[in-house]
Design a protein around this nucleic acid. Structure first.
Lengths: 117, 117
DNA sequence: GCGCCAGATCGATAGCCATCTATATACATA
DNA sequence: TATGTATATAGATGGCTATCGATCTGGCGC
């Protein structure tokens, strides 16, 4: 579905020129873009990106008490980042007694990865 | 390089238990994470993500005048988003007379794509 | 029950961000 | 030179976000 909004009718009358070939609408629909951007946004912080990196490379579920000392932020701040990742559907957690274990949801990054390739 | 910060010495003495196996440090170094997160952050807005989508799928360079009508934001706002993408090293532009043409820098998304897979 | 510990939540704060209108810049055409 | 046009920048604003210290919650050991 090509569009042609490059030049106003007035311009066309005057110059007969156009700035370029018409482009197409984005292939990703609006709601797909919202979801992809949501995931990208969650990864758009160095702490969160490294959190996901650790969780992905560690096969099982990782205790928060192991994550906290890896980063130079306070425990509440790390908890906040983990919540952001959970809200974005990238990770989930499981509680066992005092400890909380986080893990990357399988295929959570698949969509974004596919779009990027 | 494994670490062992899961339990305080006191805890170990008391319970002899640990919350989990020790994890490793993140594979991505701090500065790599900064760069990856910067790109992800730039893609973390639906308008910008769709902008990149259009530019990537359109082989050549695309005139701003074709991009503006595709989105429901004002021209200055779109200009702002394009600048963000340029600052993140994802796109670049070229001026020809009145018109500005934007294009995705080849391999700009390669790093992030590789990390995601 | 009492104290301790891991983790989440609260409340505050400072900085950033998306958006707009208005204006500037720079080129083109008459 | 004067006018119009495409894009960028400036300035303002409301909302979001990363961060912290303090506190709450719920499980554990004594």
């Amino acid at each position: 579905m090509a569009i042609d909004l490059a030049l106003t009718p007035k311009q066309k009358r005057r110059t007969g020129e156009r700035c370029c070939e018409p482009v197409v609408y984005p292939d990703v629909a609006r709601e797909d873009a919202l979801r992809l951007a949501e995931v990208a946004k969650a990864l758009g912080d160095p702490v969160r990106l490294q959190l996901v990196d650790v969780l992905r490379k560690h096969a099982g579920k990782v205790c928060v008490c192991e994550l906290v000392p890896l980063f130079e932020v306070s425990q509440p701040t790390l908890s906040h980042h983990l919540k952001k990742l959970r809200d974005a559907g990238i990770v989930d957690s499981e509680r066992k007694g005092l400890w909380a274990y986080y893990y990357v949801i399988p295929d959570a990054l698949k969509e974004l990865s596919a779009w990027l390739s």
